[in-house]
Design a protein around this nucleic acid. Structure first.
Lengths: 152, 152
DNA sequence: ACCAACTAGTTCAACTTTCAACTACTTATT
DNA sequence: AATAAGTAGTTGAAAGTTGAACTAGTTGGT
């Protein structure tokens, strides 16, 4: 495993640019939501995922989708629940299971927060590339996801 | 600001792929270092940055380079110092200033950890794109950094 | 030389994350 | 039908992060 192929100067530049960009991007989007709506980007992502599912999502699915360890998701959903944005509904067919479901209040928050968030993604991310670059990025990020998930 | 230009399905796919990839990538690289060397990716980055500077770096420069709020960096350097990887040296020309400097023990750790880390970056990141894609990614990430830093 | 405004870095307390231990339920095996 | 192994989710305590308040030193204007 330790064949230690080093990175070329160009490869290093790519990695460092990516690393810096990803931190700045995350900070910016998190700040936008935090200051305007008092929720974190992670919490927003949970709400956004739930918004497409009428009956909510299982905690385990949410954890998988958002790439969070389950205990983090538990705490996150608990916070959202305490603020009234989400409800827990126990699964009728599997008594171990719990669904997180968006409440009316959660839907209302999302309706306000989504345009701000989308505008942030547009400005800070999508607008920074042309169409060919966007397609290339999609392919590369897909490869990275696949490779990480199959641990090849 | 709320012109609310929505994202197209393709743009959404790009964003979601990026988001997932960045989380998986971070988790993987962090885990590698955590399990094998008991340091986090953030701590590694600090050590790596210090390794290129014989006289160390000012806390404020380190915070800027690693995109951390200053209090996080303070805690991070304190942890590294407690483990003996880093020393604090007060700046002679500006008595407010503090340099963080790599110790011999820190250099030794880095010598062991770097190949593992680089191998992770290679496998999970660099190997997932060809040369044209890499150049495109560098450009795009550069744009994102610039845009975020100028808050245009 | 003085004082206000600024900068560097740390500290503190509240909050978030982590991982292992735990409860409760389900599935497979015999 | 009993039991072992596996899965879903929560809990709890330790560790890490945050931003505001703080200390100490520097700079610029008068």
């Amino acid at each position: 495993m330790n064949t230690s192929r080093w990175l070329s100067e160009n490869e290093q530049l790519t990695w460092l640019s990516y690393l810096r960009a990803s931190k700045l991007l995350n900070d910016r989007l998190d700040n936008d939501l935090q200051t305007q709506f008092h929720i974190s980007l992670d919490e927003y992502e949970v709400l956004a995922m739930l918004s497409t599912e009428t009956h909510g999502l299982r905690m385990s699915s949410l954890a998988e989708i958002t790439v969070s360890p389950k205990s983090r998701l538990t705490h996150c959903v608990t916070r959202l629940q305490q603020q009234g944005y989400v409800e827990r509904v126990s699964c009728p067919t599997d008594k171990r299971g719990t669904f997180a479901v968006l409440t009316a209040k959660g839907t209302a928050l999302l309706k306000k927060a989504a345009p701000v968030h989308v505008d942030g993604v547009r400005t800070a991310f999508t607008d920074q590339m042309n169409d060919a670059q966007r397609r290339s990025l999609t392919k590369v990020m897909g490869n990275i996801v696949q490779s990480a998930e199959t641990r090849q």
